[in-house]
């Protein structure tokens, strides 16, 4: 039998010399990988910069796209435009989720009575996943006001509606995939307890489905974040439009670069959040953490 002294329950196990040596080894390996990745990144960036600077047109491009003075001059206008993008983004993302939940729920309805609704929902997702976003923007933004049926509304509002229509179709399919990925035995268990179809969906299926599709949803949100820039085609003065105005005023493309960087900054928190969430989900499934 084991002759080893065993720590009393509750007391932390004191690692052996061998284990300490192994931990030190893993730590050294960790430092080594950090150093290697640092060096390889520096070399990569250095090569890219050198190649760029060696191109014959670099001085002119640097002047037209990376002019610090033009960047500073256009920043207030572009920022103002970006604030419109942020507002459109917030309203549109709420609209997208509501639209998508509605369509996905309709698509899971059983029973022949609901056939027209189901067909409508299916037709909607087919149609709006098929049409390019920019065409929907034109049709909604210029076509619907042309009916002179609705009161006059800002271009940004029509842009938001177009975004909700297109992204609602995509996100509805994500939800539906999530709903179908919940194991049928969960549905049986809920119905076996006497819950109705609706109660089963709301209390059992949807909560599990949402958890499954959260990373995909976050990804769609990041995509929406930059597509809000397309409302500029309707004339709404967002970040892209503001950059365009500044560009044509001074014949310098730097404002576009400024707008692009601002969009990246806007997206970064969400991208990091998505990574963090996926890592947390992985950590929770402790088993098999080694492989």
């Amino acid at each position: 039998m084991s002759g080893r002294a065993v720590a009393a329950p509750g007391a932390r196990h004191a690692p052996s010399a061998l284990e300490l040596e192994r931990r030190a080894f893993r730590k050294r390996q960790g430092y080594r990988s950090v150093a290697v990745s640092l060096v390889s990144t520096l070399v990569f960036v250095g090569v890219v910069v050198l190649v760029l600077r060696a191109t014959p047109g670099w001085p002119r491009v640097a002047d037209a796209f990376f002019d610090p003075e033009a960047a500073w001059r256009s920043l207030p206008r572009v920022l103002e435009g970006l604030w419109l993008n942020v507002r459109v983004l917030l309203v549109a993302s709420v609209g997208v989720v509501l639209m998508a939940l509605l369509v996905a729920s309709v698509r899971t309805l059983r029973g022949p009575v609901f056939f027209p609704l189901r067909a409508l929902a299916a037709g909607y997702t087919d149609l709006f996943r098929g049409i390019p976003l920019i065409i929907v923007l034109y049709l909604v933004g210029f076509g619907i006001p042309g009916l002179r049926f609705f009161p006059r509304m800002d271009a940004a509002v029509w842009g938001t509606i177009a975004l909700v229509l297109v992204y609602g179709a995509y996100v509805a399919e994500v939800f539906r995939a999530g709903i179908e990925a919940v194991h049928p035995s969960q549905r049986l268990a809920a119905r076996g307890l006497g819950l109705s179809h609706g109660q089963t969906m709301r209390r059992v299926v949807l909560p599990q489905a949402l958890r499954k599709v959260t990373p995909a949803l976050m990804n769609d949100f990041v995509a929406l974040q930059k597509d809000v820039g397309l409302i500029s085609v309707l004339g709404a003065v967002d970040a892209v439009r503001a950059a365009q105005i500044e560009t044509s005023r001074y014949y310098d493309f730097t404002p576009y670069v400024v707008a692009g960087l601002l969009f990246v900054l806007l997206a970064l928190p969400m991208i990091r959040l998505t990574d963090w969430y996926s890592a947390r989900v992985r950590a929770r499934e402790q088993m098999g953490s080694v492989v």
Binding site: H13, P15, S16, L18, E19, G288, S289, V290, V291
Partner: peptide, 14 residues
């Protein structure tokens, strides 16, 4: 069993 085929980490021992 999982530590025996290195599918699980160990904190000490060999």
């Amino acid at each position: 069993l999982r530590t025996a085929n290195l599918l699980e980490h160990i904190d000490d021992g060999q």
